[in-house]
Write a protein that binds this DNA or RNA. Structure first.
Lengths: 223, 223
DNA sequence: TTGTATTAGACAAACGTTTAGTTAGAACAC
DNA sequence: GTGTTCTAACTAAACGTTTGTCTAATACAA
C-alpha cells in the first residue's frame, strides 16, 4: 500500500514493504488462529520475509501482536468519532453505527476476530497502552442508546445489554466468516454461496431498530 | 460432577475422577485460551494430575480437545431436540430457544467460547466426526424462523441471517464473560457488578421477538 | 500375581529469539 | 566519476527454552 518514502534512508530493497507484509500476514493469522495458534515462522513465510525480521522490526511476536491490536482498535475509535460528530435521531445513529462497523471491517477485515479473541481471553494482551482505546469505544456507543431513550425513540431498555446484542451480532458475523466459507466450499451447507454482507447489515439494522422502537413500528423499508 | 461408578474396575485411587478432572480443566482452558494457547502441562496441573495422564486417557492433546468438542456439541443438539419436540407459535419457540441456550451454558459454561473459536478458525478441529453434529444444530433452529414466517407471526426475513443475529448475540455474551469480569474486577467499568444473565436473556428475547413481529408489536412485558 | 492407575524423567520436535555475517544503497572525499 | 566507508536491510544458522509424547518404574486394588 502506501509507503512513506524519503522519511528514512532506505538501506536495501524496500524496508517499509517488508514491515507492511509482516503486519498483513500477522493480522490474518492472529485473527484466524490466535496468538498461541500461530508461529512466527508461518507469519514470516506468508510475508515472504525472514523470521528474524519480526524481532528486528517489532521486537518479537508479542510486540507484533500488540502493534496490530493497537492500530486496529485505533481505527475503530476514529470511525466512531466521525460518526458521533453530527447528532441525529437515535434510530438513524444506530443504523449509521452498524453501517460504520461494516465499513470498518472492509478496511480492517481482522478487527472482529481480534476483538472477540481478546474478549474471550479476558484481555490477555490488552496492555495498559491498548485498554483505554478499547474502553473509549464502548462508552461512546452507549451514548446512542441513552439518547434514544431520552428523546423517546427507543423503549426504556438497558443500554449496555442492548449494545451487547448489536455488537455481538456484528462481531460474530464477521469473525465467523472462515467457518461459513469453509462449509460452503466443502458443500456442507444447503446454500450455494455465502450470504451477502449487505443483506446481513440491512437485516440487523431493521431488526434492532424495530425491536427497540417505542412506537408500534416505524419502517423505512421491509426486507 | 457426576461420576459413572462401577462401570469399570477401579485400579488405584479413582480413575474416573481423574478423567473428569482433566476434562473440566481442559474445557476451561481451551475455551479461554484456545487450543494453541494452552499447554498440557497447565491442564494437568489444574486437574491435579500428571500430564502423562492426558495421553493415557485421551490419546494426547488433540484427542482431549476433540472429545471435549464432541460432548459439548452433543449436549447442545440434545437440548435442541427436546425443544423442538412440541410445536408452539414461532415467537414462543424463539423465546424458548434463547432460554434453552441459557440453560445449556449453565451446564456447559465453555460451549460458547469453544464454538466461537471453531467458527473463527474455519473449523480447524471440526473433524468428520464432529461436523455432522455441528451442522445438525444449525438446520434445526432454522426451522423455527421458517415456521414463524409461514404462520404469519414473523415478517418475511431471511432465516439464516436472522439466526446469525440471535446466535451471535448469545455466543458473544457468554464467550466474552472473562473480559467483563476482568474489567469490573479492575474497576475499569462504570458499573459495580456484571450484568445479570437473566436480564440479558430477557432483553434479547424481547428485542428479537419485537423486531421480527409482523403485527405492530406484541409484548408480554417490557423490561 | 495381575492389571490398572499413576508418576518422574527422558526425549525429540517445535518454537521464539539472538547472533554473526552478507548485501546493497547512500554519503562523502578526492 | 571512482573508490571508500557507513549503515540499514536482510539472511542462515545456532541457541536455549518450551512443548507434547513416550518410557520405565512404581503403587495399589483385586
Amino acid at each position: 500500500m502506501q509507503v512513506k518514502a524519503g522519511e528514512k534512508v532506505k538501506g536495501q530493497r524496500d524496508a517499509e514493504a517488508t514491515r507492511e507484509a509482516i503486519l498483513a500476514a500477522g493480522s490474518e493469522l492472529f485473527a484466524r488462529y490466535g496468538f498461541g495458534g500461530t508461529t512466527v515462522d508461518l507469519i514470516a513465510r506468508r510475508a515472504g520475509a525472514n523470521k528474524a525480521m519480526i524481532s528486528y522490526y517489532f521486537g518479537g511476536k508479542e510486540g507484533l501482536y500488540e502493534r496490530i491490536l493497537i492500530s486496529t482498535f485505533d481505527e475503530a475509535v476514529a470511525g466512531l468519532d466521525s460518526l458521533l460528530e453530527n447528532a441525529r435521531p437515535a434510530d438513524e445513529m444506530l443504523r449509521a453505527f452498524v453501517g460504520m462497523f461494516r465499513e470498518l471491517t472492509a478496511r480492517r477485515p481482522h478487527f472482529p476476530a481480534m476483538m472477540v479473541r481478546e474478549a474471550m481471553s479476558g484481555g490477555r494482551h490488552l496492555t495498559e497502552r491498548v485498554l483505554p482505546h478499547f474502553l473509549e469505544m464502548f462508552v461512546k456507543v452507549r451514548r446512542i442508546y441513552e439518547q434514544g431513550i431520552e428523546e423517546g425513540t427507543f423503549r426504556p431498555v438497558d443500554p449496555v445489554l442492548t449494545h451487547l446484542v448489536v455488537l455481538g451480532s456484528l462481531l460474530f458475523f464477521f469473525a465467523s466468516e472462515p467457518m461459513r466459507s469453509r462449509l460452503i466450499a466443502d458443500g456442507r451447507l444447503p446454500v450455494a454461496e455465502a450470504p451477502s454482507t449487505e443483506a446481513f447489515i440491512r437485516n440487523l439494522q431493521d431488526l434492532i431498530v424495530r425491536g427497540l422502537a417505542a412506537a408500534p413500528a416505524p419502517g423505512p423499508d421491509v426486507a
